[in-house]
Amino acid sequence: MKYHFQTAEDLIKLTKLHKVPISEIAKLYESQRSGSALSTIRNKMKLTRDIMYKAVKKGIKSNKKSIMGISGSDAQKVYESLKNLKKMMGNKVTVRAMAYALAVGEQNARMGRIVAFPTAGGAGVVPGVLFSAAEHFKAGKRKLLRGMFCASAVGIVIAEGSTISAAKGGCQAEIGAAVAMAAAGLTEMRGGTPEQCFDASAIAFKSYLGLACDPLAGLVEVPCIKRNAIGCMAAIGASDMVMAGVKSYVPFDEVVRAAKDIGRTMPRTIKETALGGLAITPTGNRLKKKLGLRITREL
């Protein structure tokens, strides 16, 4: 396959060879893989974008509790704070990104319709960062799509070299992957080179290596939803550093290898089993009891 890639190195080579950005290679790859026309793929991504957008819009307005009742109105609070930015330390882009990410996370917990990007648990980071940035740039929808395609290509590199399953790799595989993807997507939207995109991904991903997946009572709510918001800050921070001239000392492909190894050696209790970490704190156990789940240990 002409546009086949598995690693960042493959991808960067392809972008050089064809003199196009990562997002373009992602489109060509998908077109070749599926046999669909480029326009079909672009339309499919537009549909994806629209569904994400609806989830964001619904989420920032709603204060309905989740099905299990432990999350539900934070997106609205943070979004409201945009009216009084003087009080906040973050700027408009970061605070709005957090509000959007919380919105998607809360919609997900309400069993609303979302796009798993790359997974449902980490679905808030990419739309949070990219939508907020697009509004800032007053970017056309085109640029936003570029960010999404670029982020997806990075997701493929992670899925090929490691995993995007928390049951296999812990939260580094969900929020960590999403943050790495968003960092690259944002960097491409800002006009960064493919190398810079992967530098941003590497810096972001390194900060998430080893993160436990320890959701309370196994629900994708605590700590998941807020981790999406904080993940936006990490992605934007990594991209900012790269645009200021910083590089990642460890190349992205090696970070992915590290993630795989850490995932393999990580204890089962913190890999989406709700048997360790935050899940077995007194607060976690209280919730387990409420839902009739077995209590194994308390910290």
Binding site: M1, H4, A26, K27, Y29, E30, R33, S34, I41, K44, M45, L47, T48, I51, Q107, N108, A109, R110, M111, G112, R113, I114, V115, A116, F117, P118, T119, A120, G121, A123, M148, F149, A151, S152, A153, G155, I156, A159, E160, I164, S165, A166, A167, M181, L219, V220, E221, E272
Partner: peptide, 20 residues
């Protein structure tokens, strides 16, 4: 051929709460 699709990453479109 078993290449992962871009839309395995940017997707699926689903109702929550967990993709897996």
């Amino acid at each position: 051929m078993n290449e992962i699709s871009i839309f395995d990453i940017a997707g699926p479109i689903m109702v929550g709460p967990s993709s897996s």
